[in-house]
Amino acid sequence: MKTLTARSYQDERDLDAIANLINLCNTVDELEQGTSSNELHQSFTNPSFNPQQDTRIWEDETGQIIGYCNIYISEASNDPKDDADFNFYVRPTAQGGTLERDIFAWVEARAEEVRRERQKTINLVATARSDRAERIALLKRQGFQPWRYFFRMARSLAEPIPEPQFPQGFILRNPNPKIDAPAWVEMFNQTFIDHWNHHDLTLEQLNHELKNPNYNSQLDFVAISPENTFTAFCYCHINPEENTRSGRNEGWIGALGVRRGFRKQGLGRAMLLVGLHALKTAEVETAKLGVDADNPNGALQLYKSVGFHQLQTNIVYRKNLT
């Protein structure tokens, strides 16, 4: 094994090399995922992420990146526990050695810094696809236990899509990012406050997402009640770079929700159908989404009812730092 040097992310000059490593690992593991320097830049400029503190790079004597890890620690809240989600990648020729051990040691050390600062429990959180036996075994050896299950689902847009039906008096429109952002954030947080692992969205975070080059206001929808309350939303997105990498023509139902107090009226189904029609109008062939297998409001059943089928299962693993 070559001697490796660990360092933090420096600047945008690192992005291409990090993206190349991630794409290599995803190709070898057949994960059908990937990234680009543009996509990484969008993530690294998130106001809740500090790339100098929350990334680590391991490189050999030639400067080639052999390993990479990032950790996203939820912002401090009234919850007695915060989450530290991390992703890590090791060049296939270096897997199974000591680098994975070094990566986990860095993750725990960084999370411990935050735990001492906030004086609360930190959950270390990592995700593995259910068919990735080696990664699952690695997480278990490091003391992680399965915590939650998520499904990735897909639906062909060549199949007929029912027309959405809204309750009387509700208005559907595209939100105006400059005017509606505060009301949208309030709606989003009130919608997901009773969901697993919710952390409030901030106006700063939303504004960052709205600057994403792939954001399309024509794929962003909100339903407004007769009393002028933001009640439900469906945000869709298409990533041209992702489609180029995969050779497929796909779009995503990125966020879908109905505010508490307005559920059980058909708003969720109506908003989902609106999103599917919008993706089809954008000439997308397949719609995808992710869903919590234990969603308390029947989301899984809703998606199945409009033709979505399960593609894969992702398992969220957790380890507590107290």
Score class of each variant (00 low, 15 high):
residue 7 R to H: 03
residue 9 Y to R: 00
residue 10 Q to E: 04
residue 16 D to Q: 06
residue 22 I to G: 08
residue 39 E to A: 11
residue 42 Q to G: 12
residue 44 F to D: 13
residue 60 D to C: 03
residue 64 Q to E: 12
residue 68 Y to D: 06
residue 75 E to R: 10
residue 75 E to K: 09
residue 80 P to R: 07
residue 81 K to N: 14
residue 85 D to A: 15
residue 86 F to L: 13
residue 87 N to Y: 05
residue 92 P to R: 01
residue 95 Q to R: 07
residue 109 A to S: 05
residue 110 R to Q: 11
residue 114 V to W: 04
residue 114 V to L: 02
residue 119 Q to T: 10
residue 121 T to Y: 01
residue 127 T to F: 09
residue 130 S to V: 15
residue 139 L to V: 06
residue 152 R to W: 08
residue 157 L to I: 01
residue 164 P to M: 04
residue 170 F to R: 08
residue 179 I to E: 10
residue 182 P to M: 09
residue 183 A to D: 15
residue 187 M to S: 11
residue 188 F to K: 15
residue 192 F to G: 09
residue 212 N to W: 15
residue 212 N to H: 13
residue 214 N to A: 11
residue 214 N to V: 13
residue 214 N to M: 07
residue 217 S to V: 14
residue 222 V to Q: 13
residue 227 E to C: 07
residue 233 F to D: 14
residue 236 C to N: 14
residue 245 R to N: 03
residue 251 G to I: 12
residue 253 I to C: 04
residue 256 L to A: 03
residue 257 G to M: 03
residue 262 F to S: 04
residue 262 F to D: 03
residue 270 A to G: 00
residue 280 K to D: 07
residue 281 T to P: 07
residue 289 L to R: 04
residue 290 G to W: 04
residue 292 D to E: 05
residue 298 G to K: 01
residue 303 Y to G: 02
residue 305 S to F: 07
residue 306 V to T: 11
residue 315 I to T: 10
residue 317 Y to I: 10
